[in-house]
Design a protein around this nucleic acid. Structure first.
Lengths: 234, 234
DNA sequence: CGGCCACTTGAAAACCTTCAACCTATGTGG
DNA sequence: CCACATAGGTTGAAGGTTTTCAAGTGGCCG
């Protein structure tokens, strides 16, 4: 374990995940051995910092440890959209494994720590089965966690579904008792959901009016716990 | 190579993909060795046949060889939606690798042949690195091919983007010269895109009127070749 | 203080859905 | 062969939802 830098609670070390005290947050239950999974923890990225750019040659796969990354995509037809979020335990960059270039820009929505996974070169044939199997599990599970459960819903339901999905993925402890912070602007939420920012504002107002949640600025508290329709495992 | 059944052009055999004459369609360029990747080809599924049901215990991962599978999802709030398509070379069922149950019902939209991949048990630690690496590559690439490039677009643009994306994924040879068949009803397309079937009809009419494509029933011909914005590799 | 950014609100316009009717092709039973 | 039923497709008009435009508020920071 070679220390490269230090920062209080988030030492920047290159280490085996098996030795990490918070490996469970990344890898879920530890039924599979973690030996051979090596990673290098980053310094905290402050809000607004960009971890990687769309189009950049893919250099690494990251896993989010703490905070939140927002994925922005420049569209061919001009303009930008929010293509996704990455919350603790989720992978970033693996979707570029075959295309070779990152498909979106990843920006810290709040103070964020990531680990850079140390992967063997593709095609080398020297990969550790254990590592590959763990990653495959995560990659396979990710679309289900990440996929839009709000397709074909009304604006109101979309916003509600988004917030409940966020609470699940962010593992908010007791979302009906404690308020949590949405780390995005109304415009970002709108872009992500395919809605105008004003529509997000009005939908939040209606949801609050009907008692499904309460919201003050970016602080939300849910009235009912979200169904574990997706995102329990991994 | 053990024959289990036979049917003209689609013998139902359990074999090593390295020995399959059309392995390139499934696995792309053959830079990585295919040794150790074993699969069992199915009999052709006729239109309407169901390969697997939502909620069913996950028993296998399939790869589409020919035809098209349509993924239908029963929603918690009642009703159904088309959650996706699977075209030749695309994987099916891997997203249930961690949840353990299929998340949607897969129905043949046209005569379809699949191969059941013979995977080692998860967590066994006896997996072939070569197989895992190939599958990881495919799984990583799939969201990019499959993700909705029409989020936040108007109905017209959504329908256009869908058809172009379909032509790319289906590898239609010269989509501007030869017509190809969309293997879905207007209602299915609408469900997939989050639009009413009538809206799909009207959008197709407008696209034809403006010369972006021509359509007769389910046969489409494009005016301009789709940009290879996604889905070139894998 | 002034500027900027996120957020909010209202009113008009654009868009999409819904409803209802009708059409066409296909398949079935008499 | 015809009558009938069914499913997919198409069209028009009405109504609802969402977007757009415009204006205004409040917080934060130089």
């Amino acid at each position: 374990m070679r220390h490269t830098r230090h920062n209080g609670r988030t030492p920047c070390v290159e280490t085996d995940c098996a030795a990490c005290p918070v490996a469970r947050r990344c890898w879920g239950d530890l039924a599979l051995p973690l030996e051979g999974v090596r990673a290098r923890r980053s310094m905290p990225l402050e809000r607004g910092a960009v971890l990687l750019h769309q189009g950049e040659r893919m250099g690494a796969v990251y896993i989010v440890v703490r905070g939140c990354l927002i994925l922005r995509e420049d569209l061919a037809r001009g303009g930008q959209r929010v293509a996704g979020l990455r919350l603790p335990g989720e992978l970033l960059g693996i979707e570029s494994y075959s295309s070779g270039a990152y498909s979106s820009t990843a920006e810290a929505a709040t103070e964020t720590v990531v680990c850079r996974l140390l992967l063997p070169a593709a095609g080398s044939g020297h990969s550790s089965s254990s590592l590959l199997e763990r990653i495959l599990l995560k990659v396979a599970a990710q679309p289900e966690r990440t996929a839009a459960p709000w397709a074909g819903l009304s604006a109101l339901e979309r916003v509600a579904a988004f917030i409940e999905n966020y609470a699940l993925r962010a593992r908010v402890p007791r979302p009906t008792e404690t308020a949590f912070i949405l780390p995005m602007t109304r415009a970002d939420i709108g872009s992500y959901l395919g809605l105008a920012p004003e529509t997000v504002v009005r939908a939040l107002g209606q949801l609050q009016g009907s008692g499904r949640l309460s919201i003050h600025g970016r602080a939300v508290r849910l009235a009912e716990p979200p169904l574990e329709c997706a995102a329990p495992a991994a």
